[in-house]
């Protein structure tokens, strides 16, 4: 593409003619890089570390897709997007997929013409308050000043919640998490609201996390998931089933520890065999080699391992699995079968 950038419209058109007809999968293969849209920085989900390397839960999904398609988890170009730019970036083809804790809603799916390929995190909007405020329920927040990190559906849920409970509040919308924290910590707002996972991630960075409590009310459903452009079903399938492969692998007990052994030859469980490509031709149907899921799993392990490594209880963010446990453990994660 660099060429097209510097050699005028004529060359652009010439190059484009070749590229336009092909689908996203072929584009990605031809490019050798996956362009994945992420947030501009939310610790635990997607944030560059001190060396500038992207780390996080959403990042792991991108890497898994890149590994499945290109056999290289590092063949990802992470494109930081804001709440404003993310949809255009996806719609205009600047990114191939968006993994930016984006809530699956009707209008985004139908009106904005995107395809949500599944849910990688079941979230909900929560409230955080300083402990010494003595608030134990969000319904006691009448008249409070609320800092909102804009971007997802946060503002709308907040308005609905306070309206439904007939209490008043003063919204302070803020673009970045860092600035919202700054205001919250200085007491410029009483409450900080965003997705519960984000609250936990934010609280983890505080000097004294124990001085702040997350209120029990979860005021919205926020199913967050990766999304792709409407209409490119092959690519959508690929992203969807890569995510499902991560989830199914956990359900079936495939971990990064036993992955190599299980993938070496067909074992006793036919579903594991189909997943790992030692049986059947599921990979071929996706237009990928048979061991695509093995590659995806080799990056960071299965869903559970990715969760624990990035946002789980052992990390500073310390999120419990909760709704994001497998359906067999009382959670909501339920991948369709690999068959």
């Amino acid at each position: 593409m660099k060429k097209s950038v510097f050699f005028g419209a004529a060359t652009v058109a010439a190059l484009a003619a070749g590229a336009a007809a092909a689908g996203t999968l072929d584009d990605v293969k031809a490019r050798g890089k996956l362009n994945c849209g992420v947030t501009t920085g939310l610790v635990g989900f997607a944030a560059p570390d001190a060396n500038g390397e992207w780390k996080g839960f959403d990042v792991a999904v991108c890497r898994a897709v890149a590994a499945a398609v290109l056999d290289d988890p590092n063949a990802v170009e992470f494109v930081p997007t804001t709440g404003k730019t993310r949809f255009t970036a996806l719609a205009s083809g600047e990114i191939d997929m968006l993994a930016r804790n984006t809530t699956w809603t009707f209008s985004r799916d139908v009106d904005l013409k995107f395809e949500f390929t599944g849910i990688n995190y079941y979230d909900g909007q929560g409230f955080m308050v300083p402990k010494d405020l003595g608030v134990s329920s969000a319904k006691e927040l009448d008249g409070a000043t609320v800092c909102i990190q804009t971007g997802t559906t946060t503002e709308l849920n907040l308005a609905d919640f306070f309206r439904a409970n007939n209490i008043s509040y003063e919204p302070v919308p803020i673009e970045t998490n860092a600035e919202a924290q700054q205001q919250y910590l200085a007491g410029a707002c009483d409450v900080y609201t965003t997705d519960a996972s984000g609250l936990a991630a934010t609280r983890a960075t505080f000097e004294d996390p124990s001085a702040h409590v997350v209120l029990p009310e979860i005021v919205s459903k926020e199913p967050l998931g990766p999304l792709v452009r409407h209409g490119d079903n092959e690519w959508g399938d690929l992203v969807r089933w890569t995510l499902n492969a991560l989830i199914t692998a956990e359900e079936l007990g495939v971990t990064s520890a036993n992955l190599a052994e299980m993938a070496a030859s067909a074992g006793g469980n036919p579903e594991i065999n189909r997943l790992l490509g030692t049986e059947g031709n599921l990979g071929e149907m996706l237009g990928l080699p048979a061991d695509w899921a093995v590659k995806a799993l080799a990056v960071g392990g299965n869903y559970g391992e990715i969760f624990e490594a990035n946002i789980g209880e052992a990390t500073p963010i310390g999120l419990a699995r909760g709704l994001n446990a497998q359906w067999t453990d009382g959670g909501l994660l339920y991948s369709p079968p690999f068959r």
């Binding site: 593409m1 950038v5 058109a13 484009a16 730019t85």
Partner: peptide, 18 residues
Amino acid sequence: SVMLAYLFPPGTTTDLFL
């Protein structure tokens, strides 16, 4: 950041810097 991408030929992307 959000509009110019629509004005370039379909199927091409131009990087944000440009």
